[in-house]
Design a protein around this nucleic acid. Structure first.
Lengths: 126, 126
DNA sequence: CCGGCGCATCGACGTCCGTCAATCTCGTTG
DNA sequence: CAACGAGATTGACGGACGTCGATGCGCCGG
């Protein structure tokens, strides 16, 4: 029951954080996604998945580089999936995780102080 | 004693998160800055300071919009200053907080999956 | 059909975090 | 010099979070 909003990033998107004060709801939604990546283990998981061959990796490929137990890695992966940053694809016995295209870029766009007036975000963000 | 690294963003900078696996130290440094903004109250503080006239605001301007007590607001501001995202300028009795230029953009650059190959970060990031 | 393997879930424990009331410091003002 | 006000610090409390061992669930090979 640790997840109530399946994709809070969608609500946090298009809220530039700089330029106008965030409402309490916008801040809560955005903080939900930021909390998902504000952890060393989950940051390393994201980079490990992104750097893996084919852009996807299974749990067994991630436990050893992190030095964490398999249930802990599975828990962190679930947090990232619930935040809309990773996708899960179960093929046979293995579960392959991959980056959701545009998710991290949308987050970066929210933090950018340039005001989204330049070409930093082509079309995948909103 | 809650702060040991005065500017962990400097170490986390130029670590793209995507493209090569993060080391444990890089992930810890980056998570330190992300934890600073992964809070609804601190996100609203950042947007309130940025949207305030002159780009700076004192504590008395921030307690009422947030609905939090003065010590709590002061605590959150200290966290943001320690993370290198806000600057504190005490003039007389009042303490004025302002955004550190380029800090949020550097964070956004770390999250961007484009590989810093485009013109998203002009020159202030690294 | 059954044993093994990959992964998710559950329950528990220790720690960290957000919040507040109370207090302290220190410029400003009368 | 004394009183006031803005802000920082302290101590304490409740809840959330990260981690693990044990267990449950599906899929595959013998």
């Amino acid at each position: 029951m640790s997840v109530d909003a399946p994709f809070p990033l969608a609500a946090a998107c298009c809220a530039p954080l700089v330029g106008r004060p965030l409402t309490a709801g916008e801040a809560t939604d955005l903080s939900r996604v930021l909390k998902a990546i504000a952890d060393p283990a989950r940051l390393r998981l994201l980079s490990l998945v992104a750097a893996h061959a084919g852009g996807e990796a299974c749990v067994c490929d991630l436990t050893e580089p992190l030095g964490l137990s398999q249930p802990t890695v599975s828990h962190h992966l679930k947090v990232l999936v619930d935040a809309g940053l990773l996708s899960r694809d179960k093929r046979g016995v293995w579960a392959y995780y991959a980056l959701v295209p545009g998710a991290l870029d949308a987050l970066a766009g929210v933090l950018t102080t340039a005001g989204t007036a330049d070409g930093a975000l082509p079309s995948s963000a909103c």
